[in-house]
Nucleic acid binder design. Structure first.
Lengths: 214, 214
DNA sequence: CACTTCATTGAACACGTGTTTAGTATTTTG
DNA sequence: CAAAATACTAAACACGTGTTCAATGAAGTG
């Protein structure tokens, strides 16, 4: 259908865009020069500007491409698999899980998502807005079908769930060193999901009235 | 203004450091020029280099100062109030709550913390490491005293709790627009804590084969 | 073929950057 | 007070940056 994840695009334009995606994700937009992007793509610096107008134009193109790809991933959670999830009672659908299943291990998209959300640029805000709406809808449906417990403040609950999920991607490196496993690998995610699911289903604190720790 | 957040330091050095902290937090290190920092501090650009040697030296100084201030805040959660928390069962201890209680509304430190954690900065990594160790210790103590339920994988549980807490700061703006309240204000945090506490104590999803809690 | 369009490049330009330098006020100190 | 050290500044420098420009080759088009 959509060639969002299509890696078979070998045009110079796509090569430059992918090179920029990797460098931007790794070091940030400002720390990467046009000459570096051109070298990584194997072209001349002038060609980068020829295809994208300016460095900021390239940034916009990379943003759009990344947002499309990321949206395509998230759509699998909110749309297609929602009915299956509700039917089977499987509640372990997460953005992190989609990342692990779909992306190759060395993909730069998790890091780029981090940059999108770190900088307050409108692309990241729009991305989050769409994902939040989807999360909210899924949770409402789960409450209606009795899979999830109702809550007085569904807006907060949906935001909390989405945010806790995204944090796995945002703090991937820190989590890796803390627990000794990369949560964006199958083994690491399995460890992570197991315990998090336990909290989501049964809570973590025994006696009611106690509060969450640091 | 606590001891670490002492604003009574009116030396040019501190003024420059604070100006740099605000600008770095808002726009990132690379996007801020020495001339802008000097203008914000009301001094000449050369004085910035005179006091800190280089722009990177200034960055190191700002990092150290921010890390000290943030550590002082976190220390209040893990150290001093741990016994009180276990004894009284009261306190809702979270990093976000400490921020709201201690910092003035316009403080740049939340945004700077976000930059520290999301840019693979070694200072941010060290900060996270210390906070993780503290969180782990608190949770272990809570399990020992029966306040928290035991878990097979305490490393993951501690990481999940810390990360979910930090996510409030990392995604502050996105959460604000999603739920219509800034979670780093007293009112917004109250909403947030109420629902999150419900999840932590009773869970949010029905376990397979069980009925959702009411 | 002639002609246009597009992809691509090396070289240069204009500008902003961090930094240096030399010098002046201001404070400290013996 | 004299001298040394420090706080501070204006101006300039060296360099890397994004960008432009003219030119060359390739590919389609009538």
């Amino acid at each position: 259908m959509s060639s969002v994840t299509d890696k078979r695009d070998f045009t110079a334009r796509a090569t430059i865009r992918n090179a920029a995606l990797g460098l931007f994700a790794e070091r940030g937009h400002d720390a990467v020069t046009v000459r570096e992007i051109a070298a990584a793509a194997g072209v001349s610096p002038a060609l980068v500007l020829h295809h994208f107008g300016s460095k900021d134009g390239l940034r916009v193109a990379v943003d759009a491409h990344a947002a499309d790809t990321l949206d395509a991933i998230f759509a699998q959670l909110g749309g297609q698999e929602l009915t299956e999830m509700l039917a089977s009672g499987e509640t372990s659908t997460s953005v992190a899980q989609a990342f692990v299943q779909i992306f190759p291990p060395g993909s730069a998209l998790p890091a780029y998502l981090r940059r999108l959300l770190l900088t307050n640029d409108p692309v990241g805000a729009a991305l989050f807005g769409r994902w939040y709406a989807t999360t909210r809808g899924v949770l409402d449906a789960m409450v209606d079908s009795g899979v999830a417990a109702p809550t007085e403040d569904p807006a907060v609950r949906a935001a909390f769930m989405l945010v806790s999920d995204l944090a796995v991607i945002l703090l991937r490196e820190q989590i890796s060193t803390a627990i000794g496993d990369d949560p964006l690998t199958p083994t690491g995610l399995a460890r992570w999901t197991k315990d998090v699911t336990a909290v989501y289903t049964g809570g973590a604190f025994a006696a009611p009235g106690k509060e969450p720790p640091s």
